[in-house]
């Protein structure tokens, strides 16, 4: 039998890889992938705990909501990234340093 602890450990590993990408990458798209990894680690935790809630499905339901919210944020973020690229011709967050023009 797989215990919750195993799932939580996998989630912890994914979360830390996400943090590493978030801090070290110099490309907005890779930073976004790091955020997605962290979100997925959180969803894995929700699903793992959701096994003990058969009647209300709390964990699985909020995992579904988290997936939907991740989709919405990704769409908006990518639109912003494309706008940034149009204006600055780069998507390196270290080089985007002007407020207007």
């Amino acid at each position: 039998m797989i215990t919750i602890t195993d799932f939580l450990l996998v989630g912890a590993g994914l979360f830390c890889i996400g943090i590493y990408m978030l801090v070290s990458k110099s490309n907005l798209i890779q930073i976004l992938i790091g955020i997605e990894l962290m979100l997925n680690a959180a969803i894995l935790n929700l699903v793992a705990f959701g096994r003990y809630d058969r009647f209300n499905n709390g964990g699985q339901m909020f995992a579904l909501f988290a997936i939907v919210l991740a989709a919405a944020t990704t769409a908006v973020t990518l639109a912003i990234i494309l706008n940034v690229y149009k204006r600055y011709r780069t998507i390196d967050p270290g080089k985007i340093d002007g407020l207007k023009d």
Binding site: I2, F7, I43, L44, V47, G50, R51, G59, Q60, A63
Partner: peptide, 10 residues
């Protein structure tokens, strides 16, 4: 992994 956590719909 979600399937193994018995959350097939997710």
């Amino acid at each position: 992994l979600y399937v193994l956590a018995l959350a097939d719909f997710v």
